[in-house]
Write a protein that binds this DNA or RNA. Structure first.
Lengths: 240, 240
DNA sequence: CACTTCATATAGCAACGCTATAGGTGCTAG
DNA sequence: CTAGCACCTATAGCGTTGCTATATGAAGTG
């Protein structure tokens, strides 16, 4: 079950750590597991990497290359904010596909000690947002926007990782993503501001919904469903 | 340096753990430190709390009371979204004032294991957003909005905790906060990125009606009718 | 009193991250 | 060729971690 003995121990350690981080489900990854899989003993690890975190940092560097490659590889679409959207999605995807590695990179939080990779990810985002800024598409300095978006991005990814796989709903990601991007963008084209928002009630809302439904012929319900729905709506809205 | 011997060991353990979590800088908190400070031995801890995490959960419950008290204590301003803003700030403040406790509550992330408190915090937020929905002030279902906002809130707080104290810039928080709230709210000239204005008003109205119905337990429909009605409403409001 | 139940202590296990020390290996200098 | 010198790795074990099998005490109940 050990690794190719041809390779130098340093490489074997890196690969073993990466594999264990990628595959271990739930429980933590110990140095003993790593050294056993790499076919070396403890001092070898500490000789090359100083300590456990040093090894993980090295693994992360490799993983980060992959991450960055993902972030950079798609050709710029000419629409910087669209690229930011894709960077967000790539970030989430990376976190969900390699949760343990992601947790080492972004989830290992202690007071006043910032994972090195955060700064890099921030820089990548900022770079892209800078293009958006040049194009006059954002209304916030790129650096602040990058920090803000990254914080939300990490928060969403961590929350998704913490959820049971079958419950993971990527809509949380897309919704938060679009909220953040929308908020920093200067694109003011937005329809349908609600005028009477002040004192809405069941009745007002029902009336509004009723009118809107009849106007737009929503296709979310079948015609018979819609008929019954509208009847109930009428009962509610005419009740008080 | 031990605790008041009058108190029952269970309480002494809780206080010791809370104190160590609050004061320990950087390093982790061990069961031996806790039991030593509480003046008991290991089995006592495991008898009362099952395991270390059980003890921490209990501490967190107490800390959560404090957190919730902070979240609830300010009188409703009549402006739900303003209250959401204050809940956000209170959340960040709590995290920065008790970083270790916060990290146990929100930062202890492992795949597929969600800290219990997240659901509670989500419910608190959702409750407030429900009021906003009734007032027709948001264009997203309250539950989804709550999850999204909470994810961003946690992400921001974690990022601030990870930063050196002197670099912590609360503007990251306020900016992200306002971005998120702005994006889900309807009351601005800019509003959400809905393409079709007609459909958008359907959505807003449906969300408002849905929230209002659940709040007021309308008796205009029988329970079975209401159930079906709400299901249809959900179908409409969750379609974008 | 006998008996059960709860709560705490003694002692120790297995696993953890890590290291002092020593031995082996391959290189270069004399 | 050999001596010396880095460099690398293994043996063995330290101190600490979370946790527990077992035993003992206290407190209530018949």
């Amino acid at each position: 079950m050990s690794f190719d003995d041809q390779l130098p121990p340093k490489v074997r350690l890196l690969r073993a750590a990466a594999e264990l981080l990628a595959n271990s489900e739930g429980s933590a990854v110990s140095t003993r597991q790593i050294t056993a899989l790499a076919g070396v003993t403890a001092p070898t690890l500490y000789h090359h990497f100083g300590d456990k975190e040093g090894l993980f940092d090295a693994v992360v560097s490799a993983g980060f290359e992959e991450y960055v490659a993902g972030e950079r590889d798609f050709a710029p679409s000419g629409e910087p904010l669209e690229d930011v959207r894709r960077m967000w999605d790539n970030h989430v995807q990376f976190g969900l596909s390699q949760p343990h590695l992601y947790l080492v990179m972004f989830g290992n939080i202690r007071p006043e000690s910032r994972p090195a990779i955060v700064a890099d990810a921030e820089a990548l985002l900022e770079e892209m947002l800078n293009k958006a800024a040049i194009a006059g598409q954002i209304n916030v300095p790129p650096r602040e926007a990058a920090r803000s978006i990254l914080a939300a991005n990490v928060g969403v990814t961590l929350m998704l990782i913490a959820e049971p796989v079958e419950e993971r709903n990527l809509e949380l990601s897309t919704m938060t993503r679009d909220s953040m991007i929308f908020a920093v963008s200067t694109d003011t084209a937005r329809g349908a501001a609600q005028e009477d928002s002040g004192k809405s009630s069941v009745v007002v809302a029902a009336i509004a919904l009723n009118a809107a439904l009849q106007a737009s012929h929503s296709d979310q319900l079948s015609s018979s469903e819609l008929k019954l729905f509208l009847e109930w709506l009428h009962r509610i809205s005419s009740s008080s």
